[in-house]
């Protein structure tokens, strides 16, 4: 699609959004007027007509909202497309080599407080966290694997010895706390 037709789309879409917004505002004003009319006019006279107006208004409002949403999305798409084309066009027009020649890179770099930035990042902390987490996970996985082998070997031996009762693995922690991570019950 040509850029010109996109711009026309953008303008049309924007106009539709404007009209939709105006419709919504008008509907809102009418709705409030109806509410005021209900207070002012006796119910016996106004109830029927006002109900009909409100029903009609409600339908129109819903349609207007839906239409306004669609128009807004459409306009956003078109606007993005137009903006992309504009940016690409401008960048194509630039002579990058010449532009870079005019940028005082050394001065820019000199103004950056690199030690401050590194200190702010806390690189050591990031590395420490990452390696500790990774090491901890690997260690846990290895230990859990060996635990599984413990249970498996115990099951195998118990089966060979035709034992019917499960092994008792509890420890009588008298006077001493169990490890901090101990849970009260162990699932079979």
């Amino acid at each position: 699609m040509k850029a010109g037709s996109r711009i026309v789309d953008l303008m049309t879409g924007t106009a539709k959004v404007g009209i939709g917004a105006a419709t919504l505002v008008a509907g809102e004003i009418t709705s409030r007027s109806v509410r005021i009319a209900r207070v002012v006019v006796p119910a016996s006279i106004a109830e029927g007509p006002l109900d009909a107006v409100e029903r009609h208004l409600g339908r129109r409002q819903d349609e207007a909202r839906k239409s306004e949403r669609e128009n807004r999305d459409s306009v956003a798409d078109v606007a993005e497309s137009v903006l992309n084309r504009v940016v690409v066009g401008v960048v194509d027009m630039l002579d990058m080599e010449q532009l870079i020649d005019h940028v005082p890179i050394n001065k820019v770099v000199a103004r950056v407080d690199l030690p401050g930035v590194i200190e702010e990042i806390d690189l050591a902390g990031v590395i420490r966290e990452a390696t500790t987490g990774l090491g901890g996970e690997t260690l846990d996985a290895s230990r859990a694997g060996l635990m599984a082998m413990d249970l498996w070997s115990a099951r195998l031996v118990d089966r060979i010895l035709r034992r019917k009762e499960a092994r008792d693995l509890t420890v009588r922690w008298n006077g001493t706390a169990p490890p901090v991570s101990v849970k009260p019950e162990v699932m079979p």
Binding site: T132, A141, M147, A154, V171, V182, K183, V186, M187
Partner: peptide, 25 residues
Amino acid sequence: MSRHREIRSERGQQLQGLRAGFISR
């Protein structure tokens, strides 16, 4: 290793404080 490190393995959590098996030992 920090004391506050969490045990991520479910089996690991369940068996803490219990008698260790032959293979691990």
